[in-house]
């Protein structure tokens, strides 16, 4: 238990100092920046996951966010700081449509519907050449403008360390928001729905309304991450941002890390992705991602509440404040 309490703090210190440790090594910074992005995706995915629904289609929101922000900033010249939230909004809009069809479904059938749903925005983006330039994708997206605090300039897109710290900051803000959400009565309702929907309804929880809310919030933050991704990579295409990668990764991290906890999904991303990139990728350039398949199989068979969930047994998200999850 001591370990479980100390780990998040140590992890944070590690992440804050990483650029210094890594001597600003480009590859290391790139890997950890992407790991942090995946961690925010896993956190956002779990806003829905905590209610018991497993989505295999979050790439729909990721792609929608990326495309919205990219097109608005490219074609209208609006600052990315304004278009990124709009990416989130459009992703939530897509989630609302998805909710219309999918929220009546439960469990396996919800998962299957989300898996199929991704195809819709993807194929539309792919074919709406006039607006999205189709399967060619978008190149030369504007980077993130540097932030000014008085005379201090925080350069984001100009340096890898800047990008890294930006994603880290966003991740911490999202972590704070998710913690507040899960500890609030919203979190209580979502967990109750996950555990016993009928009983949740009987104590007065409006099940469908809360499920929709969690889907919208989850999609919103996934869309924001997608938008940031576009401006960081500065190149997007339908097959990339709507690809299975961005549906599968958050699901895998959340389940392996522990979808009944706040931190588990993010921790899994921050451990597994670097392990994949630094250890398995050099060994097995083609096929290194088998790792993700293997861990999800092991998790579902032997540790359904995830590694972090197992370490923190009996300490799932609770309204009792004061304990770090």
């Amino acid at each position: 238990m001591q370990v479980a309490r100390a780990a998040p703090v140590l992890g944070l210190v590690f992440l804050l100092l990483l650029p210094v440790f890594a001597r600003y090594n480009d590859y290391v910074l790139q890997v950890f920046t992407h790991a942090l992005l995946l961690a925010t995706l896993a956190l956002a995915w779990n806003i829905l996951g905590v209610s018991g629904s497993i989505s295999l289609g979050h790439a729909a929101f990721f792609g929608a966010g990326a495309y919205t922000s990219a097109l608005l900033s490219l074609d209208l010249g609006v600052s990315p700081w304004a278009t990124i939230p709009l990416g989130g909004v459009l992703a939530a809009g897509i989630a609302a449509i998805m909710g219309l069809f999918c929220l009546r479904l439960r469990g396996a059938y919800f998962a299957l519907a989300t898996l199929a749903f991704v195809e819709i925005p993807k194929v539309i983006t792919d074919n709406w050449d006039g607006l999205t330039r189709g399967s060619l994708g978008l190149v030369g997206l504007p980077g993130l403008p540097s932030l000014r605090l008085g005379s201090y300039h925080f350069d984001i897109s100009g340096s890898l360390a800047g990008s890294y710290y930006f994603v880290l900051g966003y991740g911490l803000v999202l972590l704070l928001l998710v913690t507040l959400m899960f500890r609030s009565n919203l979190g209580l309702a979502l967990q109750a729905i996950r555990e016993e929907e009928i009983a949740a309804e009987a104590v007065g929880i409006q099940v469908q309304r809360y499920r929709l809310l969690s889907l919208l919030l989850s999609a919103f933050f996934t869309g924001i991450t997608g938008a940031c991704y576009g401006h960081l990579i500065r190149y997007i295409e339908p097959g990339l941002v709507y690809g299975l990668h961005f549906s599968a990764m958050p699901m895998i991290f959340a389940i392996c890390g522990g979808r009944f906890t706040i931190l588990g999904p993010a921790l899994a991303a921050l451990v597994l992705y670097p392990v994949d990139q630094f250890i398995f990728h050099p060994l097995l350039p083609a096929g290194h991602e088998f790792l993700y398949g293997a861990v999800i199989i092991l998790a579902i068979l032997f540790m359904p509440s995830g590694v972090w969930g197992q370490l923190r047994k009996g300490h799932f998200v609770s309204i009792k404040t004061g304990s770090i999850e």
Binding site: R183, S184, N185, L186, L188, A189, Q191, A192, R194, E195, E196, I198, A199, A200, A202, V203, G204, I205, F260, S305, G314, F316, S318, I319, K320
Partner: peptide, 30 residues
């Protein structure tokens, strides 16, 4: 319920708090 339906992964206290929070006037935090 005839076969009781607790919120299994939540603490016993949270189970009751859920009833309290959603049975009464709504606040964002308990």
């Amino acid at each position: 319920f005839q076969s009781s339906r607790p919120f299994a992964k939540m603490s016993t206290l949270d189970n009751v708090v859920v009833g309290r929070v959603f049975g009464g006037e709504f606040h964002l935090f308990a």
